[in-house]
């Protein structure tokens, strides 16, 4: 069995609102990724996927707070470490992050090369300016980025280039886990493809040892990651391989998501788009039972009042639902016949 790069156990984090209320937007999340693998996280906006990305780094600042659970990166538990130790030895080296708004992720008044210098220096690595420059140049050349970009400010780069530069900067220290939060949603399809190719190449060549990819674009996720995990209201509701999740989703919410995929392919026009009525619950007062029950057409009273654990029903496949897998599949099959 391949080495586990990231193991997250029952991680719970919360936001404390200005009114002092606790909002548990990541609730007992467990996940793991093996070396060389990628995991996709899907879900509606507000389901907690971006918060999960931030929570996984073990570095918290208000309004986000750590509550419980553990994060183990390549055998090292990073929860409970001193924040400055996390900053110096985990961020950028163990876990790197590509933010949602990568267009504005670079300091507008700092040249790319200088910023890389700041990153290296923040980790107190024994390198002088010349060595850092050499390393940056080599890395840019390897990733197919123009070396001149190092002497430019972010405003001087085009959107797609800026995005790829951010990825190059994030991964400059060869992180064990790369967390990418919607890295390509602001780009047009051609730039998106270039960004994705670059990220896949980095994973394949081992520059990055594993990857978490967050997006609401399911066709993209399907093509990028090995596994897909669906989040709903701060919890994981289902996990499986990308292929299984797209073609054989078990959880009613995952099924709703997967049935909303629209791609320019034969057959798409015949698909019946499924609308999921309603909105996700308010996490200030989460429902006692299944969090999706309010919107679920198969929900029973038991669903609404009994806490719902997550269960493994096949190797590598977990789900969180009050109905059995067989039952759900039967229902789906009869629906598809209609």
């Amino acid at each position: 069995m391949a080495k586990k790069m990231l193991e997250v156990n029952q991680l719970t984090t919360k936001y404390i609102t200005r009114q002092g209320e606790d909002v548990y937007s990541v609730d007992h999340v467990s996940l793991d990724i093996e070396e060389g693998k990628s995991l996709g996280i899907a879900g509606e906006s507000g389901c907690g996927k971006s918060t999960l990305a931030l929570s996984l780094m073990g570095y918290y600042f208000p309004p986000l707070h750590y509550t419980s659970g553990s994060i183990v990166v390549d055998g090292k538990d990073i929860t409970g470490l001193d924040p400055d130790v996390v900053r110096k030895t985990v961020l950028g080296t163990d876990i790197a992050y590509i933010p949602q708004a990568a267009m504005n992720a670079l300091n507008p008044t700092r040249k790319v090369g200088k910023f890389i210098e700041d990153v290296i220096k923040a980790h107190e690595l024994p390198m002088d300016k010349k060595q850092i420059r050499e390393m940056a140049e080599q890395r840019f050349a390897r990733l197919g980025l123009p070396v001149e970009a190092l002497d430019k400010y972010s405003v001087e780069l085009s959107g797609g280039m800026r995005q790829r530069v951010v990825i190059a900067v994030s991964t400059i220290l060869n992180p064990k886990v790369l967390i990418a939060d919607e890295p390509s949603s602001a780009l047009d399809v051609t730039s998106q493809k270039m960004v994705i190719k670059m990220m896949k190449d980095m994973l394949a060549s081992g520059l990055v040892k594993s990857m978490i990819f967050i997006t609401h674009e399911l066709p993209l996720l399907y093509n990028v990651t090995d596994d897909i995990m669906v989040m709903y209201a701060g919890q994981i509701v289902e996990r499986g391989s990308a292929h299984e999740m797209v073609f054989d989703p078990v959880h009613p919410y995952s099924r709703g998501l997967m049935r909303s995929i629209l791609v320019p392919e034969e057959g798409t026009r015949d698909v019946k788009l499924t609308a999921i009525p309603g909105t996700p619950p308010n996490l200030k007062h989460p429902p006692a039972g299944c969090r999706f029950a309010e919107r679920c057409r198969y929900a029973t009273n038991a669903c609404r009042y009994n806490a719902m654990p997550i269960l493994e029903f096949a190797p590598g496949r977990t789900y969180r639902c009050g109905h059995s897998v067989e039952h759900l599949r039967e229902v789906y099959a009869s629906e598809d016949e209609e």
């Binding site: 931030l54 780094m57 570095y59 600042f61 900053r87 110096k88 985990v90 961020l91 950028g92 080296t93 790197a96 992050y97 933010p99 708004a101 990568a102 267009m103 504005n104 992720a105 670079l106 300091n107 507008p108 700041d118 990153v119 923040a122 980790h123 951010v166 900067v169 994030s170």
Partner: peptide, 14 residues
Amino acid sequence: NADYVKYSRFLGIK
């Protein structure tokens, strides 16, 4: 509140 502040933080910059 700019995005680069958050990004720099998560890159481990002091």
